[in-house]
């Protein structure tokens, strides 16, 4: 786990935002919405694993549930 994950997520967000602007300028509002929803879900799947990892570590450090 290192800092590059954050930059990857931020880059994905910037790419999706730019594509979103293009699609909505081209008059394809529904596809732009679907694209942003897909981006949010992809990043969320990524984040859920990180959150699980993090909470496990916090539990082991503070010896919760013992």
């Amino acid at each position: 786990m290192d800092v590059t994950v954050i930059y990857q997520i931020a880059g994905l967000g910037i790419i999706i935002a730019i594509l979103n602007i293009f699609l909505s300028q081209a008059g394809r509002g529904e596809q732009a919405q679907m694209l942003s929803l897909a981006g949010v879900i992809i990043v969320l799947v990524w984040l859920v694993q990180m959150i699980a990892n993090f909470f496990n570590d916090v539990e082991s450090v503070f010896q919760l549930w013992q």
Partner: peptide
């Protein structure tokens, strides 16, 4: 700096980037 742009254009991914940063920083 990234979040200044992301919060305006895509607030949902901006929040997720902030969450990812918090998790990585706390893990370190």
């Amino acid at each position: 700096v990234f979040l200044v742009f992301l919060r305006r254009e895509m607030a949902s991914i901006g929040a997720q980037v902030a969450l990812a940063f918090v998790i990585v920083a706390l893990l370190t």
